[in-house]
Design a protein around this nucleic acid. Structure first.
Length: 606
RNA sequence: GAUCCUGUAGCUCAGCCGGUAGAGCACAUCACUUUUAAUGAUGUGGCCCUGGGUUCGAAUCCCAGCGGGAUCACCA
């Protein structure tokens, strides 16, 4: 059963469902932050699809203090450490009013791209408007019971003077450094301590003021309680780190239940987003931020990546070619399954419904691996290739999807692909390349460059010619391809040779091939058969052979006899006997006649 | 130490409200005039981590281990 169905089963359809999630805008959001966003969105979509009364709200926790500085921005942010995020000026050059808006707006923009239609709220508005006044009062009054739960669940001992609340210091504006030491039912007394936390220094000010209307905030675990009880939230998943026993989710849930007698929201714990088995960290560069991943993958791909794995399981992302290609292929096959109408594809249909934004229309699209190759050949019109592949014009949707897949391929090549994954057209023949060529490759080059003069320069003809020329060397097509990749890409593998050479152009290809010099005898030796093999060949093919010719070649104390067979399907094949000496004309004739008699094939001089 | 995830073919995994062990890749054989990770057909390959329990019957459910991964113990 797909995970969304399990969530569905656990919820009461007669209840109004309110889904909540939030993010602290303290820096550039990490990719993993999107998992919660999308898991909640998937639940939202599924509930909506089942006609539940459901709403999805998403908050910016912008009343939290600045407790770490976004990478590389020490100069600007250091002096604001400890102040509420929403009261800190944005980094220089930002178009936003404050630090919190600066970071959350980019995150919310991704929501739009991913089709996440959550109703957004900001904690500054919630606190300042007084909406949490009631919850704050209740929590302050129940501090002993709350403290007891902290102790029981997580074993943390709080002092007698502990109050679960922090105000914004009237003197220095910090919220992370203040400690409330008394509450008289109307106002709190606080101290702004220089050494309360390691990451910020309070000013030492002591004051007394109302805790309401935005003067301060609840600590994280109680803020959760306040949200849940004030708004009646029924569903809120949390990362595995919060969801562990004794973790913040556990503490908050028990406080809500035991102190305030309400049911905590349904939890959907979700795991981390790992790269190559390690947790992706923002400091490790590309691909780590939500913004970059959103730039890389189209919405439906990113949603699929985040939602096809059951939430509890970690997602093991890898930017390797095999992972990315598999991701796309899996998605394409899920999409095919979803549109197949087959009953056993129900799960695929469910995955597809929460991944794709518009699930009404199927589409044809070339595989990622094809596109990533074509993208490396600048001349190729990929849209034309796609039309050819489909055998029809592209729909508007197909053109659009293809466009984003091309962008993804380019992004992948630029940011993730290893040198092995990429290829670069070689502009000249280097010693390094020549050293890698084997004698049989020279045989192919010799044959191929001759044959290329006689064909019309099209992708399919070139492709076809490789096979035809190979038979005349003879050499296996596989080895012939390798020769071409070496000569033009300095690699063992590459994209379709027809495309590649077509792009390079007849002149360039012929100039390159004709500039390669070598002596023939080693080729003869490398591309030869034994007399026994020749006889076997004759016996095996004699029904198909229409005509046969031979020619004798000699050079530098060695020689060879080449047999050229024409088959009834139009193919021409060559087989060569190699000799470490010159042969007299009579000897040549004798060898040829021997073969002719044994195989019953008439062999004429060329 | 605690919590969660995970252990099934050489590799990546599906199957998990019990009923004869699955897919893709890889490998092997055959076929083939075309290598875009990917031509078609056929085939090889598994004490489903271990031990116990429930059951007519367990890969599946329960308990206990072992191995791998992650998270938590101050703060969000």
């Amino acid at each position: 059963m797909f995970w969304t169905q399990e969530v569905l089963k656990a919820l009461d359809k007669n209840e109004v469902q309110l889904i909540n999630d939030s993010k602290t805008p303290s820096g550039e959001p990490h990719v993993g932050s999107l998992r919660g966003v999308l898991v909640h969105d998937a639940i939202f979509k599924v509930l909506k699809g089942e006609d539940y009364q459901v709403k999805y709200i998403f908050g910016s926790d912008d009343y939290d203090p600045v407790d770490e500085i976004p990478k590389g921005q020490d100069d600007h942010f250091t002096k604001y450490l400890g102040m509420p995020l929403c009261n800190v000026p944005p980094p220089p050059g930002s178009e936003y009013s404050d630090m919190a808006e600066h970071f959350i707006s980019g995150f919310f923009k991704i929501f739009d791209d991913l089709g996440v239609k959550a109703e957004k709220y900001r904690m500054r508005d919630v606190y300042r408007s007084g909406k949490f006044n009631e919850a704050i009062e209740k929590i302050l009054l129940k501090r002993d019971a709350i403290k007891e739960i902290y102790r029981q669940v997580s074993g943390s001992e709080k002092s007698d003077k502990w109050y679960p609340f922090q105000v914004i210091c009237e003197n220095c504006g910090r919220i992370g450094t203040t400690e409330v030491i008394d509450f008289d039912g109307k106002e709190v007394t606080y101290v702004c301590r220089p050494d309360l936390v390691k990451w910020a220094t309070g000013c030492g000010h002591t004051g007394k003021m109302s805790p309401y209307d935005g003067n301060g905030k609840l600590p994280w675990k109680l803020e959760w309680v306040a949200k849940w009880m004030t708004w009646g939230i029924t569903i809120e998943g949390a990362g595995m780190d919060h969801s562990t026993k004794g973790g913040s989710r556990d503490v908050s849930g028990r406080i809500l239940r035991e102190v305030f007698g309400k049911k905590p929201p349904y939890n959907v714990p979700y795991g981390f987003f790992l790269t190559e088995g390690a947790k992706m960290s923002s400091s490790k560069g590309i691909g780590a931020t939500a913004r970059e991943m959103n730039e890389f993958l189209a919405p439906e791909m990113l949603r699929y990546l985040m939602l096809s794995t059951p939430p509890k399981r970690a997602i093991n992302f890898s930017p390797s070619e095999s992972f990315i290609v598999k991701l796309y292929n899996d998605f394409d096959s899920v999409r095919e399954g979803a549109f197949s109408g087959l009953e056993e594809k129900e799960q695929q249909r469910q995955i597809y419904q929460i991944s794709e934004l518009n699930t009404s229309e199927n589409y044809h699209i070339p595989s990622f691996s094809l596109i990533k190759n074509l993208v490396q050949m600048p001349h190729i019109d990929i849209y034309a290739a796609a039309r050819e592949l489909k055998g029809d014009g592209l729909t508007e949707l197909e053109g659009y999807r293809l466009g984003s897949r091309i962008r993804s391929a380019k992004f992948w090549l630029e940011h993730f692909a290893t040198d092995e994954d990429k290829f670069t057209i070689q502009h000249e023949l280097t010693e390094e390349i020549l050293e890698k060529l084997e004698p049989e490759h020279y045989g192919l080059i010799q044959q191929f460059r001759q044959d290329l003069h006689h064909i019309e320069w099209t992708e399919t003809n070139i492709q076809q010619q490789i096979f035809d020329s190979s038979r005349m060397v003879p050499i296996t097509p596989k080895s012939s391809f390798k020769a071409m990749y070496l000569i033009f890409l300095n690699k063992d593998r590459g994209p379709q040779v027809g495309n590649l050479l077509y792009y390079l152009g007849r002149e360039t290809v012929l100039n390159r091939l004709e500039s390669i010099q070598f002596s023939e005898p080693p080729v003869w030796k490398a591309c030869s058969v034994t007399l026994a093999e020749l006889n076997d060949f004759g016996n095996e093919h004699k029904e198909k052979i229409v005509s046969a010719h031979y020619r004798y070649k000699a050079e530098r104390q060695v020689s060879c006899i080449e047999f050229i067979f024409e088959l009834n399907n139009g193919q021409k094949m060559l087989r060569r006997l190699y000799f470490e000496s010159y042969l007299e004309p009579e000897e040549v004739v004798k060898v040829v006649d021997d073969f002719a008699n044994k195989s019953n094939i008439v062999v004429l001089p060329d």
